[in-house]
Design a protein around this nucleic acid. Structure first.
Length: 520
RNA sequence: GCCGCCAUCGUCUAGAGGCCUAGGACAUCACCCUUUCAAGGUGAAGAUCGCGGGUUCGAAUCCCGCUGGCGGUACCA
């Protein structure tokens, strides 16, 4: 809200500039959300630029992964390699002549120079500097030399790079919108390569060049870039361009506070969240909680913010100047909570649609089964991630094996369990034949009456029958699950009878086989 | 090594000199509700505001120093 410099005129334009490494990094998603929030708030534009200047790192399909990730999160761009725009191309590998001309011009201006030093020589130079405890820095052997002159010296290669001539005096001050002014001595920065021998630019040339060419008004990037900003400012200065406003954002980090890596945490990839059954709105909510405070109009205490909010709220309340600069550990517990909330907020039809692919992956082919909707409705408030759904509902569709010992509830023995189950059998038959029909309320009434007759008075005692007791295990094969009577209604009388019969046989075996060790 | 960034409960944060006996959320624990599990409700525990100096009547908030963590120091981004 207070972060548009006076020098900027025209619409605000921000860009996400990921390099196509094969997946969308969660840090890129964080940046993209921040960009979108800022751009939308100022009715500006969000642009996607692919920084594919490293041929060694080429990964096929990597661009698609970036598009997929951003689209999944609902973060849309108005210009990019796929949709075009007035300032294209938006793929740096398609802008090579531009960078080459720029590098050449910098050389002509005396702000850059050719360097024919071989990687081996540079390597050796660095080793010597390290041994002498000097800061590693290019020794400017090639500076001011023609190719013919340089060729006489050792460590020469045919194909030169272009190096930026960094001033050996003065300092660069960055007016960081998040961190305030940052000052760095120019002399500490070496003559960085800006054009590689293969004709590709490095980030240090391509990024500032394109930010200017694409009329970017605000650079947002991770804090790992702070120390190379003076290099980029040199480029702007050499061409007489006004540098954009700039903000170095906090990093998403590993639990040990190091730079996040997919080695340590699979959630470095945005696609992981989709595959684990997180909802994009929950991920947006989570990332948003790391960069914005959304006030709660219903809370008289203004110091208490809302925890649940959406992209619209983020856009409305985003304030770049108030983004906290420290690194953020990804807290999956918090995300799980948010995701559970998002799942509960879904209409049942939406939930079914979203769960469908997870059912298929789990080879539970029940998408067309009429039991799916009521079963999922029961599990909806119990699952935290969509991935848990198949396991949560599978027993509605198939009889599953379980340990016979589970049929014996706490505080009872196998004979008692058998007794409870036999009596239940009769109750089930009565309800099935009764005029109220096979409905949860009828089942509940019947079983409450049965519990009374069996002397199960307290809730705990009734638990032996229905809570986590014989009936639940007999019917579902598990000790935990959704409300029993509703589960039984969905299952239908035939399935319930069949499973109870099976349980009866298992229990009979248990009771006769292990009389002596019945008490648990 | 050098340069830079960062520093409030385990985590994310509120806090812009007196409202702070440091507030909230997640996670944890207990209780309530209850047929189990959830969901929901209530409560507890959890931070000598990294440390040490200043400035001030008064500092988590301002200044200086230190420490620690991280990042950068590539023909990677």
């Amino acid at each position: 809200m207070s972060t548009i410099p006076d020098t900027v005129s025209g619409p605000v334009r921000l860009r996400l500039a990921p390099s196509p490494t094969g997946f969308l990094h969660i840090g890129s998603a964080f940046l993209a959300l921040l960009d979108v929030a800022f751009a939308k708030q100022h009715r500006g534009q969000f642009i996607l630029r692919i920084e594919d200047t490293d041929q060694k790192r080429f990964v096929a399909e990597a661009e698609e992964a970036i598009y997929d990730g951003l689209r999944w999160l609902g973060l849309e761009w108005s210009e990019g390699p796929d949709v075009g725009g007035d300032y294209g191309p938006y793929r740096q590998s398609e802008r090579l002549p531009l960078y080459q001309a720029a590098a050449e011009e910098l050389v002509k201006m005396g702000r850059a120079y050719y360097c024919w030093c071989s990687p081996e020589r540079l390597d050796q130079m660095r080793r010597e500097q390290q041994a002498r405890k000097l800061p590693p820095k290019y020794d400017r052997l090639c500076l001011g030399k023609t190719e013919a002159e340089r060729k006489q010296l050792p460590g020469y290669t045919e194909r030169p790079v272009v190096r930026l001539l960094m001033p050996s005096e003065g300092q660069t001050t960055i007016d960081d919108l998040i961190r305030g002014p940052i000052t760095i001595e120019n002399a500490l920065i070496q003559d960085t390569v800006i054009l590689k021998s293969d004709g590709y630019p490095t980030y240090h040339l391509a990024a500032p060049y394109d930010d200017h060419a694409m009329r970017i008004t605000h650079i947002t990037r991770g804090e790992e870039w702070i120390s190379s900003t003076p290099i980029h400012w040199q480029i702007f200065d050499a061409f007489g361009w006004e540098p954009p406003a700039i903000a170095h954002t906090p990093l998403l980090i590993n639990a040990d506070r190091s730079k996040i890596s997919k080695r340590k945490h699979p959630w470095a990839k945005v696609s992981w969240f989709r595959d684990e059954g997180y909802l994009p709105e929950a991920v947006i909510n989570y990332l948003g909680s790391l960069m914005v405070h959304v006030p709660d109009p219903n809370n008289p205490d203004p110091s208490i913010d809302r925890d649940i909010f959406g992209l619209d709220d983020i856009v409305r309340h985003f304030d770049l100047g108030r983004v906290d600069p420290s690194g953020k550990i990804v807290d999956l517990d918090k995300l799980n909570w948010l995701n559970g909330h998002s799942i509960r907020a879904l209409e049942i039809g939406e939930l079914i649609d979203k769960v469908r692919p997870f059912l298929e992956t789990a080879r539970l082919h029940v998408a067309g089964d009429p039991k799916l909707a009521p079963a999922l409705a029961l599990e909806q408030e119990r699952i935290k991630r969509l991935k848990e759904a198949p396991e949560a509902v599978s027993f509605f569709f198939r009889d599953e094996d379980y340990d016979a010992k589970l049929l014996v509830p706490r505080g009872a023995d196998a004979n008692r369990a058998l007794e409870l189950l036999r009596a239940s059998m009769q109750t089930v038959e009565e309800v099935a034949a009764g005029e109220t029909g096979w409905k949860a309320p009828a089942l509940e009434a019947a079983f409450r009456a049965l519990a009374e007759r069996l002397g199960l008075k307290t809730g705990k005692e009734r638990g032996q029958l229905i809570g986590a007791g014989v009936m639940r295990v007999a019917v579902t094969g598990r000790t935990v699950g959704p409300p029993l009577f509703e589960t039984m209604e969905i299952l239908g009388a035939d399935t319930v009878r069949r499973r109870m019969q099976a349980a009866l046989e298992m229990l009979a075996g248990l009771a006769s086989g292990a009389q002596r060790s019945a008490v648990r």
